[in-house]
Simulated assay, not measured.
Amino acid sequence: MPAKLLAEMFTMAPANKDHQVAIRCAVGVFVPLITLVLLGRLDLAIFASFGAFAGIYGRNEPHGRRFVLQLRAGTLMLAVILLGALAARAGAVFALTPTGTIWLQVLATTVVAGGCSLIVAWWRLRPAGSLFHIFAFAAIASIPNQPPLGQGMLVAVLTVALSLLIGLSARVAPSRRQPWSWPRPVRLTAAERRVAWLEAVGYLVAAGLAGTLATLAGEWLGFGHNYWAMVAAVVPLVGHSTRHRISRGVQRIIGTALGLVLLAAILLLEPAPWQTVLVIAACQFGAEMFIARQYMLAQVFVTPLALISTLLVAPVPAGTLLRDRFLETVIGAAVGVAVVLAPALWRRVAAGHRSMED
């Protein structure tokens, strides 16, 4: 098992038009962010960053099916963004203490993790799972100084619309124009529905447990950003085998550590806002180039991408940011691997009890 895990971490899958997807996603995030830089409205950058996530769906699908998948993904992301912005205001509305607000966000993010996992499975979206929705909801909900809700949602809607247009952009060239056809709705089979519900429970348990542990550890050791642990916890839940899922958890930790080194080098250069946007676009390109081929390498780009986007809206000391990201990732990945292994361990224990009774 260790040898196979090690081999998997250093294996590169063959390319499959990844550069086309990477270019679309990089443009989809660059245009809205550079526009906000020119307008002097970086407080809205996080809404654009998450709205652009619609472009990662339907990677190599025909144009008609890609449009439907991205429309569904964009609609779901807009709902998550709206809920995150409302959750950020809930503490003041219900007069909660700072600690009470944090625990409310953990609870709400846990519900989002399970609910969005189920919706993604029902709509047959790929990438599977609710990782992006956990990240979007919790990141927006944790921003202390919220911009006007209408302005934030307008930026998110426009960014999703841009992603849809970019997804159809290849139709401009006759040589790359694919026949337009609307995909027929395909209902989940009984077995697929059962799997979808089980996966949703897994996301609920992993995110909730990771969020709880990260919050308690953060209060004890003095670090924050508990939702990064919740994001990392659901990473191992995606995979076709137990070994592959464990490998994803390990790759998440190693890739994050390497990505933090890259981020530290970027921060030392003290880039201007427009340069920061270029870095985000470059990291988005790198992430999409490798996310389907080599997960650990993709994390080297995902880590600075996620953290620089956060810094645009809520600046924190670089050392604190790097420390929190690594510790939260370790906590989350460990929880995710434990959730993956728990069913098999439970079956072994149950089998042992039965054999003893016999």
Rank of each mutant, 00 (worst) to 15 (best):
V112D: 03
A113G: 07
L165Y: 02
R176Q: 12
T109M: 06
L149N: 07
V201M: 11
G129C: 07
N145V: 13
W182S: 01
T189L: 06
A136V: 05
P127K: 02
C116Q: 09
A196G: 08
A214P: 04
L209E: 01
L165V: 14
A113M: 10
P183E: 11
A200Y: 01
G211S: 08
A191L: 13
S163W: 01
T159D: 06
E192R: 05
G167L: 12
L118R: 07
L209G: 02
A156F: 10
Q151F: 02
A138V: 12
G115D: 01
V172F: 15
V195D: 14
G150M: 10
V201K: 06
R184V: 08
A191G: 05
A206C: 09
A170S: 12
R171S: 14
V205R: 07
V112Y: 08
A141Q: 07
G114M: 06
T212F: 14
V205H: 10
P148S: 11
V155D: 09
S142R: 13
P144M: 08
M153Y: 05
A190R: 15
R177N: 15
V111I: 15
T110L: 06
V195Q: 15
F137Y: 10
W197Y: 10
L162W: 13
R187A: 15
W103C: 07
L162M: 13
G211F: 05
V157E: 01
L165G: 12
A207W: 01
S169M: 12
R194V: 11
P179M: 09
Q146T: 08
V160G: 02
P179V: 08
G202C: 03
